[in-house]
Design a protein around this nucleic acid. Structure first.
Lengths: 209, 209, 209, 209
DNA sequence: CATGAATGAGCCTTCATTCAT
DNA sequence: AATGAATGAAGGCTCATTCAT
């Protein structure tokens, strides 16, 4: 698809010929995020990413070692964005219950919008050791954040890192189930699921958890 | 035309045997399960599966349209096996708590042993519509079983299908985390996680849930 | 297509288990003629031929060295049939003009009915030396027949073998054009073409040609 | 990943050259014409064509969807060449008889040189709908040219399109018979055949035909 | 004689990556 | 820095034919 030599007219003309490398890289990462999100890990090619960003194939490989590398970069960018958004919610403060509700809504929204990207990342992690390492690092950081959050609020105790982890896993699993259309196909109510997830999170955020 | 190159001695197995298609199919499915479990979705080829089962490539294609088809078959076989095992535990009866403990132990064991197969199936489901359909059907059946189980024991109520689903998802997510080495890499205690999962399940199995 | 192992119920039951070998062979040739005629050289497989005749694959190879061999046999049978039919017309006698008209009608009909078989044979002749030899033998015999026919009626002379050959070639080419749908696609009138072919043949059949 | 095996020195040709797609395509078509002419439809593979042109397999698929597509391109190129050559002869003018003689000589020569290519094209046309369409288009154009030629010279009448078509078919059939060695194997004199073909053509080219 | 499961060489095609321009 | 044509290993799959039963 698309690789036949046919001299595409290269769209309009407002492309960045010889711009700042950082800018080029940013465009490529953004294009990659969209492509992976839409076409999945295997459907996305370096050609496609470069083309969407307005560059030629070779340019892509000037900025990234390979397809995997951009995907990791794009995924990391997405995670950062999500955390920033959630961080803002947390800083907003309020009752655990209300905070949980806002966080769940936000998470669900972001996972739905970027479900394909996450799925692609999962698949890469399953195949590629480097990607797995990056992914685990992100998970570790996430756990740490939640941990510090809990400590701020003062906590009960027990094997709480594991409790946090399980809550996070459940949340993500539920979000993914929505994003991948699993709930619809299994005739499960989205609201009911999200209610329960919210309850779990609220519980975890409560000082006396 | 044909025997120009000596065939490798076919490795293990007893022997191909002419005239027993059902047996051949069974061997191919078993071989596929092992290969996918070890090498993953992309590392496994029809050639490899056939060779492990002691057959030639063509034989594989006499029994399955493609790689995807065997993977689905192998996964379905695995799920059946797991349910049968769990079913035996359930029939064993006993307190919810004890039953949950046995089920979780069994599930963890089977997910660890066949983590690669599950991962391969996940990846296929993400790419292949037919596989997704089969997978959802399995999930639906699983949900039904759990539902009937709950009804047998008499239950409290609420949006319980969703509650069941969430428990199942959490269980599987936790098992996968163990199987994929996620817990180890994140420095999370396996026992602590399984304790919590057991608690969740016991709760779900209790009549007054 | 069709090679998946699924234990076809083998149709009814009135098949010839262990019949006379000659009968089996005849059935296979007839089945081959139909299959090649419908599916062409590449679309036809030994499996298909055997199945249509009501036998298993292996039986086919007990009677023929390979696919090519049946095709040649089937084609030879067809040619014989055509010649016999034409021979009957010739024996019917009459004016060259009338005889030509009957022969052309008959030839057109037979070529239309068996156009696919002829096409398959052509393709085989292009690829297989043995088939080519058989085909040339048939052509030689055909030429001889026409030659003797001409001598019977007393003839003029000139380089007449070549003249005969060219008339035969033109006839067959025209018949094939009809059979393959060439005329229709080129918007050429079938009747007009056949008129001219008839004229050519009548001319060739006239004593003073 | 890629250069693990040293590539064969690419045989003849000058050099692949980056950045000249048109040139590459031309080379591939030329190589395809030679390969198909020598090895026939089934003996020719995309690999072989690419190698003969001095390129890698993948390059072939950048320019053509498949084997069929190049064959059609190569055949069309051949037809164009033939018509141009014949066109020059026609422009040369002269008596119908002399013109016919020159055209037949030229046609025979080109068909002998490219008999294998034509045969390959025939076989493709029998199997591939797209190729058949292209082939018919060429035939239609050819008919139109001959028609206009006849009109220029003023003509008698009758169902002349069909007459033209039959002459063309006979010519081609005769040329093919020479090219495929049919005449030799049937002990038919080439000169005698060509004489008759020339007479046919001269007749068709005469104003009062 | 008949069966039909098994064989496996080889074709077709893709796509991640390189490199001459 | 950017280009985009070229690369070629690696799979997927078919189908003519064999042979154990």
């Amino acid at each position: 698809m698309g690789n036949r030599i046919l001299k595409k007219p290269t769209a309009g003309s407002e492309r960045p010929k010889r711009g700042a490398p950082e800018e080029t890289r940013r465009r490529l990462v953004a294009a990659a995020a969209e492509e992976f999100n839409i076409r999945g890990l295997h459907g996305t090619t370096a050609d496609l990413i470069a083309a969407r960003a307005g560059y030629a194939t070779g340019t892509f490989y000037k900025h990234f070692r390979d397809k995997n590398e951009v995907l990791v970069a794009a995924y990391e960018a997405w995670v950062s964005e999500e955390w920033n958004a959630i961080g803002r919610e947390v800083l907003g403060g309020g009752e655990p219950e209300a905070m949980a509700r806002r966080i769940v809504a936000l998470g669900a929204e972001l996972h739905i919008r970027w479900g394909g990207l996450r799925r692609a990342m999962f698949m890469l992690v399953a195949d590629d050791a480097a990607a797995q390492k990056s992914y685990r690092a992100l998970q570790r950081r996430q756990l740490k954040i939640v941990e510090s959050l809990r400590k701020q609020r003062g906590e009960g105790g027990g094997c709480s890192r594991e409790a946090d982890a399980l809550v996070l896993m459940t949340m993500e699993r539920a979000f993914d189930a929505i994003a991948q259309g699993e709930l619809r196909e299994l005739n499960l109510g989205r609201t009911a699921i999200l209610e329960r997830v919210t309850a779990l999170l609220a519980d975890a955020l409560s000082p006396d958890a």
